[in-house]
Write a protein that binds this DNA or RNA. Structure first.
Lengths: 348, 348
DNA sequence: ACTGGCACTCGAAACATGAGAGTGCCAGGG
DNA sequence: CCCTGGCACTCTCATGTTTCGAGTGCCAGT
C-alpha cells in the first residue's frame, strides 16, 4: 500500500502538487508549496519529501531542476486518497435541476444531460443511451397491408414499439399465411431478451429451408430480415457526446489531439472503456493516463459513473479530459448528475 | 467580372499559387512557380503579374518579401474559374460503390456515407438526415390495447411508420371512444405536412375544452401529446458528422480550432449554413473563409451538395475544412458521393 | 511585352549571454 | 531523529546579435 512508503506529510505534499499543477499548468516547486499551503515546515523539508515522492514515481521533474509534475501513478494515488466527495455548490445544484427538470422526452433529457455535464466540468461529456440489451421481446406482430406489404411490429419490454414496412416482391401475401408466419416467429422469439432473440433469429434464418416451403423461403427470409434489423437496431448501444471544443484548450492535449478525437469518434471503443470502468463496485470510477492506453487514450483521464433507468438496468455516463483535471470537482459533478438523472428517470 | 481586370496568364498564375500553396502550406514565390509550372516566361514577369493580383487582393504576402498566399477572394475566383470537374479515379469510384453498396438500412447508409466522405477528402464530413419537414401525414390511427393503453400510429408520406404507446391513468378506454377520438384527430391532421400538422396539433391541444367533455380532457391531452411528440421527432432535422480528427492536422486551424469545434457542435448553425449554401442553383456549392463568418466559421471553407431521397425532397451533405483545401478534388468527391447516394436511395 | 540584374527587406536559424528558479546536499541545531 | 539554512550547481527561458537566403520591387535594356 501507499501508506507504507509515503509519509502522512508526503501525501499532503502530493495533494498540494496536484492541486497547484492542475490550476496553474506549471511545474510546482518546493517554495511555491510552502507559500501557498500552510505547511509548518521549510522549503528544504518539502524538498526532501519531494525527493521521496520522486523515488516512488509519484511525481517527476520535466528537466533537472525545475518544479515537479504528478505522474499517472501520482494522480492515481491522489484520486484514491481523496477523502470525501466535495459537495456541489448550490449554484451547481440548481443548474442541474433547472436544466434537467424541463423535459420529459428521453432523448431531450439525455441531450441536456450531456451538455450540462460538459459545461459543469469543462470537459468532454459522454452519455450512453439506455441499453436495451437485456430487454425482453414482449410482442411480435405481422400485419398484411395489401397484397405485397407486410408491417412488422416489435414491442419491447420497456414499452418501446418499433415497426417497419416490408415490401415483398411477389403478390403472395394472404392474411392466413402471414398469421402462420407470425405465430412461428413470435413463438420462437417472444420472451427472449434482445441478445438471445437476435441469435435465435439468425438461427431461424439459417435453417429456413427446414420449416417453410421452398418457394416461400425468399419471402420469409425478407420478413425475418426486417425483424432482425429491428432487433439489432435496438440492441446496439449508442452514446451522445458534447463539449469536444474543450479538448483544444491550449496546454492540454497539444500534440495528441488527433488521436484523442479519433478515439472519441470510435464510439465502440468508448463504450468498452466506460463499460470496463463502471463494472467495478465503486459508485464513480476514474481511469487515468496510461490506464487508458488500450483504448488509444493514453494521455487522457476518464471519470465514469452510471445511472439507472426504468427497469433494473444501468447505463453509463462520464467525462473525459486531460490528466491534468480537477478530479475532486469532476467526480462530484459526475456523481451528482448521474444520481439526478436516475431520479428523474425513475419518476417518469 | 474577374476577366476585366485579371489577364489570362494572371489567372493561370493564381491557379498555380493556389495549387502549390494547398499542397505545400508555404507561401509560394515567383521562382517556385516558373520551376514547377511550364509558363514560357521568366520569374520577373510572373512577379509583375503577382503584383497585379495583389492589387486585386487575390493574393497577399504574409510579410514584405516572402511568397504569396491566396486570400479568401483569391480562393473564390479560383473555385469560380475551375473549368471542369475533375473525374474521380477508378479507385475512388470503386471505394464509393463498395462502401455504400453493402447496406439497405437508411441509418447505416448515411453513417457509411459520412465516414466515406471524410476519408476520401480528409476533411470533416457532414450528412443531413432526410428531412421530413415537407412530408405529409398519410394516416393516423389510435388502437385501444386494453383498458388503459392506447397505441398511437402515425404513417407518413414516405412510408415511415411511427408509433408510441400511451398509458392512460384511468380505465376509461373503450373502443368506440378511441375511434371517435381517432376520427377527430385524423380528420384535422391527415393531409397536412409535418410543419402544418404540428401547428394544428398545438392548436387542438390549446382549445381542447371546446370539443371534448371536461372529464375527458386529460386523456385527450395525453393522446394528443403523444401525437405531437411524434410529429416533432420527425420534423426535426438531424445531421451526422465524421472526421473531426482531421481538423487537428497541424498547420490548418491552429488557433481557431476551439471555435470551429464549437461551431460544429452547434448543429443548428451547420444546418442553416448548408441550407443557405445549397439553395442556389448550382449542383455543388462552396463557401470560403469569411463568407462563413456569420456562422462562426471564418477560417473555414465548406463544400456542399444535396442528395435526393424517395419522394421529391432533398437533403444536404458536404465537407468542411480549412480554406487551404483541395477544392477541385473535394468538389468532385462531394458531387460524386451525393449522386451515388441519390441513386442508391432512389432504387430502394 | 518581356528579361536580367541588382539593391533591399525581412524572417528563420544559429549562437551567445544573463537572470532566475529550483534542486541536491551538507553541516548544524532542536 | 527530524528539521533548517545555506550554498553550489544545473537547466530553462527570454533576450540580443549575427548571418543567411529567399523573395521582392524596380529599372534599364532588348
Amino acid at each position: 500500500m501507499a501508506s507504507e512508503r509515503v509519509s502522512e506529510r508526503g501525501l499532503a505534499v502530493l495533494h498540494a502538487i496536484v492541486r497547484d499543477y492542475v490550476s496553474s499548468n506549471e511545474p510546482v516547486g518546493s517554495k511555491a508549496i510552502v507559500d501557498r499551503h500552510r505547511f509548518g515546515v521549510s522549503a528544504a523539508t518539502i524538498r526532501n519529501d519531494m525527493a521521496l515522492l520522486e523515488d516512488e514515481e509519484l511525481i517527476a521533474a520535466p528537466h533537472t531542476s525545475s518544479g515537479r509534475v504528478p505522474t499517472d501513478k501520482g494522480y492515481r494515488l491522489y484520486v484514491d486518497t481523496l477523502s470525501r466527495i466535495r459537495p456541489l455548490t448550490s449554484g451547481q445544484r440548481s443548474a442541474i435541476e433547472r436544466f434537467l427538470g424541463e423535459s420529459h422526452d428521453l432523448d431531450d433529457m439525455l441531450a441536456r444531460t450531456v451538455r450540462l455535464l460538459s459545461q459543469l466540468t469543462n470537459q468532454v461529456a459522454v452519455v450512453q443511451y439506455p441499453s436495451l440489451r437485456r430487454t425482453k421481446v414482449r410482442h411480435i406482430d405481422l400485419v398484411a397491408l395489401g397484397e405485397d406489404r407486410v408491417l412488422c411490429v416489435l414491442i419491447l419490454g420497456t414499452g418501446v414499439v418499433e415497426q417497419q414496412l416490408a415490401t415483398l416482391p411477389a403478390a403472395q401475401v394472404t392474411e392466413a399465411w402471414v398469421n402462420g408466419l407470425r405465430d412461428r416467429i413470435a413463438g420462437a422469439l417472444v420472451g427472449l431478451d434482445l441478445e438471445e432473440a437476435e441469435a435465435e433469429a439468425q438461427l431461424l434464418t439459417g435453417t429456413i429451408d427446414d420449416w417453410v416451403q421452398p418457394d416461400e423461403a425468399d419471402l420469409v427470409r425478407l420478413v425475418l430480415g426486417v425483424v432482425l434489423a429491428q432487433l439489432q437496431a435496438n440492441r446496439s448501444d449508442r452514446i451522445t457526446i458534447a463539449g469536444r471544443a474543450n479538448l483544444s484548450r491550449p496546454g492540454d492535449f497539444e500534440g495528441s489531439l488527433p488521436q484523442v478525437l479519433e478515439a472519441i469518434e470510435e464510439q465502440v471503443t468508448l463504450l468498452r472503456l466506460f463499460g470496463e470502468l463502471v463494472s467495478g463496485d465503486r459508485e464513480v470510477a476514474a481511469s487515468i493516463g496510461r490506464e487508458n492506453e488500450p483504448y488509444g487514450l493514453a494521455g487522457a483521464s476518464v471519470i465514469a459513473s452510471s445511472y439507472e433507468h426504468e427497469g433494473d438496468s444501468r447505463s453509463n455516463l462520464g467525462v473525459l479530459g486531460p490528466m491534468r483535471m480537477d478530479y475532486a470537482g469532476n467526480i462530484a459533478t459526475v456523481r451528482a448528475v448521474a444520481s439526478y438523472l436516475s431520479k428523474m428517470l425513475g419518476e417518469a
